[in-house]
Nucleic acid binder design. Structure first.
Length: 216
DNA sequence: AGCGAGATTAGCT
DNA sequence: GCTAATCTCGCTG
């Protein structure tokens, strides 16, 4: 009946949500606060041993490169942060507090080091695997990806594995996609866990989501 | 529910 | 040497 109308997926890993399409390079071109806002509601797709782990972004933070005392790029390009100074739409993964990884999406053109920290997801598929990676029972989904360190653990994202990945590449094992979901509301708050420029409102959340790292 | 401490590594903002 | 875009546990109340 419908097999004639089913379009061939243009990418190797067909999305569980058939209408989703990968984000394009120019999605990541604007300033970090605009990209942080636009990323709310988008999907993160992670392929692990052939299994598709997906989550919807519900919390982000903008970091403003050389202009931002709280940003890793503030002091200029180093071996650690060089991805931030490259082309937009790439993963910047860093290691923090001796045990956690955090995932950022680089934005702005090459030479400009803005980025967006992904702080929380609503897990959509692969919850059992996420729970195993988190060493937690699968019965508490709101503990799986409700924080920047947690979501990296749940998706097995490390610096060695994912730093520098092209987040627009649907053949990669980590990329971002749009399934058409649009948040009804967006709230803005100061960023969490930083001491410098701590009062600057650059954290974006889907309000009342049960999967935020902290409530409003 | 809210606070404080410990875990543990890389980079020096 | 010290700090850091964190998380979990245990204590208090």
């Amino acid at each position: 009946m419908e097999h004639h109308q089913n379009p061939q997926p243009q990418y190797q890993h067909a999305l569980l949500t058939p209408l989703a399409t990968p984000l394009q390079r120019d999605f990541f071109l604007p300033a970090p606060d605009r990209v942080a806002r636009a990323l709310l509601g988008k999907l993160i797709v992670r392929i692990l041993d052939g299994e598709q782990l997906t989550g919807r972004i519900v919390e982000t933070e903008a970091y403003f490169g050389l202009d931002d005392p709280a940003a890793h790029a503030y002091a200029g390009e180093t071996a650690r942060n060089r991805i931030l100074f490259g082309p937009p739409g790439h993963a910047y993964v860093y290691f923090i507090y001796g045990m956690h990884y955090c995932l950022n999406a680089s934005c702005e053109p090459s030479g400009h080091a803005g980025c967006v920290l992904i702080r929380a997801l609503e897990p959509l598929s692969g919850l059992a695997t996420m729970a195993r990676l988190r060493r937690q029972p699968a019965s508490r989904p709101h503990l799986l990806t409700s924080g920047p360190g947690k979501l990296c653990q749940a998706l097995a994202i490390t610096r060695a594995d994912s730093n520098g990945s092209d987040l627009t590449d649907p053949n990669a094992s980590l990329f971002f996609a749009d399934d058409g979901f649009r948040p009804a509301q967006i709230a803005v708050t100061p960023r969490i866990g930083i001491s410098k420029a701590a009062d600057h409102p650059a954290r974006f959340v889907i309000p009342h989501s049960k999967f935020l790292s902290r409530a409003l």
